[in-house]
Protein backbone atom coordinates (compact mmCIF):
# COMPACT_ATOMS: atom_id res chain seq x y z
CA UNK A 1 0.00 0.00 0.00
CA UNK A 2 1.29 3.43 -1.01
CA UNK A 3 -0.35 6.63 0.16
CA UNK A 4 1.02 10.17 0.03
CA UNK A 5 -0.74 13.43 0.88
CA UNK A 6 0.67 16.70 -0.36
CA UNK A 7 -0.84 19.87 1.10
CA UNK A 8 0.71 22.01 -1.64
CA UNK A 9 -0.70 19.84 -4.41
CA UNK A 10 0.16 22.40 -7.08
CA UNK A 11 3.82 21.33 -6.73
CA UNK A 12 2.96 17.94 -8.21
CA UNK A 13 1.22 19.61 -11.14
CA UNK A 14 4.22 21.91 -11.70
CA UNK A 15 6.62 18.97 -11.48
CA UNK A 16 4.74 16.93 -14.08
CA UNK A 17 4.49 19.98 -16.36
CA UNK A 18 8.26 20.44 -15.99
CA UNK A 19 9.14 16.96 -17.27
CA UNK A 20 6.28 15.67 -19.44
CA UNK A 21 7.61 16.98 -22.73
CA UNK A 22 11.00 15.32 -22.34
CA UNK A 23 9.79 11.98 -21.01
CA UNK A 24 6.41 10.48 -21.79
CA UNK A 25 6.41 7.04 -20.16
CA UNK A 26 8.34 6.74 -16.90
CA UNK A 27 8.65 4.60 -13.81
CA UNK A 28 8.19 6.19 -10.40
CA UNK A 29 10.07 4.25 -7.75
CA UNK A 30 8.31 4.49 -4.42
CA UNK A 31 9.96 3.52 -1.15
CA UNK A 32 9.59 4.58 2.44
CA UNK A 33 12.11 7.36 1.79
CA UNK A 34 10.00 8.97 -0.93
CA UNK A 35 9.39 9.01 -4.67
CA UNK A 36 12.20 8.88 -7.23
CA UNK A 37 12.22 8.99 -11.00
CA UNK A 38 15.00 8.84 -13.53
CA UNK A 39 14.28 8.89 -17.23
CA UNK A 40 16.08 9.71 -20.45
CA UNK A 41 14.34 11.53 -23.27
CA UNK A 42 13.54 9.49 -26.36
CA UNK A 43 16.77 10.43 -28.13
CA UNK A 44 18.97 9.60 -25.09
CA UNK A 45 20.45 13.07 -25.16
CA UNK A 46 19.16 14.30 -21.82
CA UNK A 47 18.09 12.77 -18.56
CA UNK A 48 15.56 13.96 -16.02
CA UNK A 49 15.62 12.88 -12.39
CA UNK A 50 13.48 13.92 -9.48
CA UNK A 51 13.24 13.11 -5.81
CA UNK A 52 10.31 13.89 -3.53
CA UNK A 53 11.23 13.10 0.07
CA UNK A 54 8.74 11.28 2.26
CA UNK A 55 9.16 13.93 4.97
CA UNK A 56 8.10 16.63 2.51
CA UNK A 57 4.61 15.14 2.45
CA UNK A 58 1.94 15.78 5.06
CA UNK A 59 1.46 12.02 5.22
CA UNK A 60 3.51 9.30 3.51
CA UNK A 61 3.10 5.57 3.76
CA UNK A 62 4.80 2.90 1.68
CA UNK A 63 4.63 -0.64 3.03
CA UNK A 64 6.98 -2.09 0.45
CA UNK A 65 8.88 -0.66 -2.53
CA UNK A 66 6.71 -0.18 -5.61
CA UNK A 67 7.34 0.80 -9.19
CA UNK A 68 4.54 2.73 -10.83
CA UNK A 69 4.63 2.91 -14.64
CA UNK A 70 3.10 6.25 -15.55
CA UNK A 71 2.21 8.00 -18.80
CA UNK A 72 3.07 11.58 -17.84
CA UNK A 73 0.84 13.09 -20.52
CA UNK A 74 -2.15 11.26 -19.05
CA UNK A 75 -1.14 12.22 -15.50
CA UNK A 76 -0.89 15.86 -16.59
CA UNK A 77 -4.42 15.66 -18.03
CA UNK A 78 -5.69 14.35 -14.71
CA UNK A 79 -3.82 16.98 -12.71
CA UNK A 80 -5.53 19.65 -14.80
CA UNK A 81 -8.70 18.67 -12.92
CA UNK A 82 -7.11 19.83 -9.65
CA UNK A 83 -7.43 23.36 -8.35
CA UNK A 84 -4.31 25.40 -7.66
CA UNK A 85 -4.91 25.31 -3.89
CA UNK A 86 -6.00 21.68 -3.73
CA UNK A 87 -4.50 19.10 -1.43
CA UNK A 88 -3.50 16.05 -3.48
CA UNK A 89 -3.46 12.49 -2.19
CA UNK A 90 -2.01 9.62 -4.24
CA UNK A 91 -2.80 6.00 -3.48
CA UNK A 92 -1.81 2.66 -5.00
CA UNK A 93 -2.20 -0.93 -3.89
CA UNK A 94 0.85 -3.18 -3.85
CA UNK A 95 -0.32 -5.24 -6.82
CA UNK A 96 -2.75 -2.78 -8.32
CA UNK A 97 -2.80 -1.46 -11.84
CA UNK A 98 -4.04 2.03 -11.04
CA UNK A 99 -2.87 5.12 -9.20
CA UNK A 100 -5.70 6.91 -7.46
CA UNK A 101 -5.44 10.67 -7.19
CA UNK A 102 -7.69 12.60 -4.85
CA UNK A 103 -8.02 16.38 -4.99
CA UNK A 104 -9.48 18.14 -1.95
CA UNK A 105 -10.32 21.83 -2.07
CA UNK A 106 -8.83 24.04 0.62
CA UNK A 107 -12.10 24.11 2.55
CA UNK A 108 -12.48 20.37 1.96
CA UNK A 109 -15.96 20.95 0.51
CA UNK A 110 -15.13 19.51 -2.92
CA UNK A 111 -13.41 16.20 -3.50
CA UNK A 112 -12.41 14.69 -6.84
CA UNK A 113 -10.98 11.24 -7.24
CA UNK A 114 -9.53 9.85 -10.44
CA UNK A 115 -7.94 6.49 -11.21
CA UNK A 116 -5.02 6.57 -13.62
CA UNK A 117 -4.23 3.32 -15.40
CA UNK A 118 -0.65 2.23 -14.78
CA UNK A 119 1.59 0.68 -17.41
CA UNK A 120 4.47 -1.74 -17.50
CA UNK A 121 7.47 0.24 -18.70
CA UNK A 122 10.90 -1.06 -19.56
CA UNK A 123 13.27 1.59 -18.34
CA UNK A 124 16.99 2.02 -18.52
CA UNK A 125 18.81 3.40 -15.52
CA UNK A 126 22.01 5.35 -15.87
CA UNK A 127 24.69 5.45 -13.20
CA UNK A 128 25.77 9.04 -12.71
CA UNK A 129 29.01 9.30 -10.77
CA UNK A 130 29.64 12.11 -8.31
CA UNK A 131 31.36 14.75 -10.36
CA UNK A 132 33.95 17.31 -9.54
CA UNK A 133 32.54 20.35 -11.29
CA UNK A 134 34.66 22.87 -13.17
CA UNK A 135 32.16 25.63 -12.45
CA UNK A 136 28.99 25.87 -10.41
CA UNK A 137 26.61 28.78 -10.92
CA UNK A 138 23.51 29.65 -8.93
CA UNK A 139 21.14 32.23 -10.39
CA UNK A 140 17.49 33.22 -10.24
CA UNK A 141 15.49 30.64 -12.20
CA UNK A 142 13.76 33.50 -14.04
CA UNK A 143 17.20 34.71 -15.22
CA UNK A 144 18.10 31.28 -16.60
CA UNK A 145 14.70 31.09 -18.30
CA UNK A 146 15.20 34.47 -19.92
CA UNK A 147 18.72 33.73 -21.15
CA UNK A 148 17.84 30.47 -22.88
CA UNK A 149 14.64 31.94 -24.31
CA UNK A 150 16.33 35.07 -25.65
CA UNK A 151 19.20 33.12 -27.20
CA UNK A 152 16.77 30.71 -28.87
CA UNK A 153 15.69 33.53 -31.15
CA UNK A 154 19.29 33.85 -32.35
CA UNK A 155 20.41 30.25 -32.84
CA UNK A 156 19.91 26.57 -32.07
CA UNK A 157 23.04 26.05 -29.99
CA UNK A 158 24.72 27.92 -27.17
CA UNK A 159 28.30 28.02 -26.03
CA UNK A 160 28.51 28.35 -22.27
CA UNK A 161 31.83 29.43 -20.87
CA UNK A 162 32.86 30.04 -17.30
CA UNK A 163 35.89 32.21 -16.72
CA UNK A 164 36.99 34.52 -13.96
CA UNK A 165 35.00 37.26 -15.75
CA UNK A 166 31.75 35.40 -15.16
CA UNK A 167 29.57 32.96 -17.04
CA UNK A 168 28.96 33.71 -20.70
CA UNK A 169 26.20 32.34 -22.93
CA UNK A 170 26.81 32.81 -26.66
CA UNK A 171 24.56 31.93 -29.57
CA UNK A 172 25.18 32.26 -33.27
CA UNK A 173 22.68 32.06 -36.09
CA UNK A 174 21.76 33.27 -39.56
CA UNK A 175 20.66 36.67 -38.24
CA UNK A 176 23.74 37.33 -36.12
CA UNK A 177 25.32 36.56 -32.78
CA UNK A 178 24.48 37.27 -29.16
CA UNK A 179 26.41 37.05 -25.91
CA UNK A 180 24.97 37.28 -22.42
CA UNK A 181 27.46 37.50 -19.57
CA UNK A 182 26.47 37.14 -15.94
CA UNK A 183 28.80 38.40 -13.26
CA UNK A 184 28.71 37.40 -9.65
CA UNK A 185 26.50 39.68 -7.54
CA UNK A 186 26.02 40.15 -3.83
CA UNK A 187 23.83 43.24 -3.62
CA UNK A 188 20.36 41.83 -4.24
CA UNK A 189 17.75 42.33 -1.51
CA UNK A 190 17.14 38.64 -1.31
CA UNK A 191 19.91 36.04 -1.28
CA UNK A 192 18.21 34.00 -4.02
CA UNK A 193 18.30 36.96 -6.42
CA UNK A 194 22.11 36.95 -6.48
CA UNK A 195 24.27 35.23 -9.07
CA UNK A 196 26.94 33.08 -7.47
CA UNK A 197 29.77 31.56 -9.44
CA UNK A 198 32.23 29.08 -8.04
CA UNK A 199 34.90 28.26 -10.57
CA UNK A 200 37.66 25.70 -10.22
CA UNK A 201 38.85 25.83 -13.82
CA UNK A 202 37.71 27.65 -16.97
CA UNK A 203 35.32 25.57 -19.04
CA UNK A 204 33.62 25.90 -22.42
CA UNK A 205 30.83 23.62 -23.58
CA UNK A 206 28.25 23.64 -26.39
CA UNK A 207 24.61 22.65 -25.92
CA UNK A 208 21.37 22.47 -27.86
CA UNK A 209 19.15 25.36 -26.73
CA UNK A 210 15.98 23.36 -27.34
CA UNK A 211 16.75 21.18 -24.33
CA UNK A 212 17.99 24.00 -22.09
CA UNK A 213 14.71 25.78 -22.86
CA UNK A 214 12.76 22.70 -21.93
CA UNK A 215 14.52 22.55 -18.55
CA UNK A 216 13.22 26.07 -17.84
CA UNK A 217 9.73 24.57 -17.57
CA UNK A 218 10.76 23.83 -13.97
CA UNK A 219 10.99 27.58 -13.23
CA UNK A 220 7.69 27.63 -11.26
CA UNK A 221 9.15 25.03 -8.88
CA UNK A 222 12.03 27.10 -7.56
CA UNK A 223 13.25 30.68 -7.35
CA UNK A 224 16.84 29.63 -8.07
CA UNK A 225 18.59 27.21 -10.39
CA UNK A 226 22.07 25.72 -10.17
CA UNK A 227 24.03 25.06 -13.36
CA UNK A 228 27.00 22.70 -13.04
CA UNK A 229 29.52 22.68 -15.86
CA UNK A 230 32.26 20.10 -16.12
CA UNK A 231 34.87 19.87 -18.83
CA UNK A 232 33.85 17.31 -21.52
CA UNK A 233 30.82 16.14 -19.50
CA UNK A 234 27.05 16.75 -19.55
CA UNK A 235 25.72 19.92 -17.95
CA UNK A 236 23.58 19.47 -14.87
CA UNK A 237 20.72 21.90 -14.20
CA UNK A 238 19.20 21.61 -10.72
CA UNK A 239 16.00 23.01 -9.30
CA UNK A 240 15.50 22.47 -5.58
CA UNK A 241 11.87 22.21 -4.56
CA UNK A 242 11.64 23.80 -1.14
CA UNK A 243 11.05 21.33 1.71
CA UNK A 244 10.22 18.55 -0.76
CA UNK A 245 13.11 17.53 -3.01
CA UNK A 246 14.55 18.37 -6.40
CA UNK A 247 14.35 17.98 -10.14
CA UNK A 248 17.63 17.64 -12.03
CA UNK A 249 18.31 17.67 -15.74
CA UNK A 250 21.43 16.37 -17.47
CA UNK A 251 22.26 17.22 -21.07
CA UNK A 252 25.05 15.76 -23.18
CA UNK A 253 27.16 18.41 -24.91
CA UNK A 254 27.54 18.88 -28.63
CA UNK A 255 31.01 17.90 -29.73
CA UNK A 256 33.21 18.58 -32.72
CA UNK A 257 33.37 15.50 -34.91
Amino acid sequence: MFEARLIQGSLLKKLVDAIKELCTEVNWDISNSGINMQSMDGSHVCLVAFNLRADGFDHFRCDRPLTLGINLGNLAKILKCSGSNDIITMKADDNGDTLTLMFESEKQDRITDVDLKLMSIESEHLGIPDQDYSAETSMPSSEYQRIVRDLSSIGDTVNISATKEGIKFSAMGDIGTANITLRQTSSADKEEENVKIEMKEPVLLTFALRYLNNFAKATPLSSTVQVFLTKDLPVQVNYNIQDLGYVKYYLAPKIEE
Binding site: V45, C46, L126, P234, A252, P253, K254
Partner: peptide, 14 residues
Protein backbone atom coordinates in the same frame (compact mmCIF):
# COMPACT_ATOMS: atom_id res chain seq x y z
CA UNK B 1 29.44 22.25 -36.85
CA UNK B 2 29.34 20.32 -33.58
CA UNK B 3 27.18 17.21 -33.39
CA UNK B 4 24.97 16.14 -30.52
CA UNK B 5 26.47 13.42 -28.37
CA UNK B 6 24.29 11.10 -26.31
CA UNK B 7 24.37 10.39 -22.60
CA UNK B 8 25.57 6.82 -22.86
CA UNK B 9 28.91 8.23 -23.96
CA UNK B 10 29.31 9.59 -20.43
CA UNK B 11 27.24 7.45 -18.08
CA UNK B 12 27.02 3.67 -17.83
CA UNK B 13 23.72 1.86 -18.20
CA UNK B 14 23.03 0.01 -14.98
Amino acid sequence: TPVQNNLEEYYALL
